[in-house]
Design a protein around this nucleic acid. Sequence first.
DNA 1: ATTTAAAAAATGAACGTTCATTCATAAATT
DNA 2: AATTTATGAATGAACGTTCATTTTTTAAAT
Lengths: 194, 194
Amino acid sequence: MAKLQKSIDKRKALIKATIELVNNNGFHATPMSKIAKMANVSPGTIYLYFENKQDLVNQTYIEVKTEYTNYAFKTYDLTMTVAEGFKTIWFRIADFKLNECENALFLAQCDNTPMIDEESRQEGIKHLQPLLDLWTRGKNESLIKPISNHMLYAYAINPLSFLLMSQKRGAIKLNKKNMEEAFEAAWTSIKLNK
Amino acid sequence: MAKLQKSIDKRKALIKATIELVNNNGFHATPMSKIAKMANVSPGTIYLYFENKQDLVNQTYIEVKTEYTNYAFKTYDLTMTVAEGFKTIWFRIADFKLNECENALFLAQCDNTPMIDEESRQEGIKHLQPLLDLWTRGKNESLIKPISNHMLYAYAINPLSFLLMSQKRGAIKLNKKNMEEAFEAAWTSIKLNK
DNA sequence: ATTTAAAAAATGAACGTTCATTCATAAATT
DNA sequence: AATTTATGAATGAACGTTCATTTTTTAAAT
């Protein structure tokens, strides 16, 4: 196999192992030696690809966050109405959480702990801009409540993280039906009533 | 000072130190030696009050969670209407997050990481029952959407954790005005439209 | 009140383990 | 043969926990 491809595979395996182990044990309870073992690589090899442990999670975070937002905006385009656009993005995000739940859980843990450097966190947030722009447009058109984007995010998007976490704990099972219910709750919480 | 009171104070100091250090560094990046130092106690003393580090966070979690729910239901009583009851509880929870934000942030971190034993987590959840009962009543009276309690929690309560976290990161400042906005979003997301 | 001795609480240095990281050596690739 | 990539045992720092010793508290005796 080509050298380059092997390198890419190894890096991927390391990131995948990091996600799985951090999801189950948390950042600091995940030794580098275990990450190496799960990725079928020697501990020393990790340091050819990453500066240190912190760099490994930072990069993992940015990579997963980028994948997440790419997925979220894949089918969205600026010609859509605010309602259409929101529904499109919302269901893509929901799909991501359902289909890539390891990735989504990793992001949730990163967003709720001091595990990621502030710099990497900022980097990760940037990619969400299209949704914020859509909301700004919605507010201008009096379709969306005139409240801050953080507030909109808290009610329209963030609940999905809680639902995902509940599913991981076995408390609920997410399916098509309750995703429709969730969308309805998300939309009614942010749309402006005439 | 009485022996008993000194013991209580020491235990309190240890729990307070645990909350502050875990909030800022995470569970595994918080050494027992630092907790001891912050509580003005020798490392060995911790083990007179707690079995080990895991027991210390478990007990801290249960204690803070109990404080939280006591606060939440303090002014609620069963004679209230569903709408009244929900508003009462919701604003108490909001007040707790605003006034006891160290405690609230600690709970948020516990709820989003594998840091707490499953047993202690279950113990902590129990105390939320009055709110779940209220929602069940609301569903029976066709005032609340017929969706699972987890779904209701995700939209009516959980967003407050996100808002609190955003405030800690300096992204927003929570005040009376946006708490009113938040309540409105919470209520519209779960109330049943005739 | 004061003394005293037994009991309880607290201390912190020491221990054994775990972990992130390094680097001399080996394997793979060019 | 030269260069790049990978290895994994070795290193040293940091950590949770223990326990021999000290300090404080208690309460009985004076």
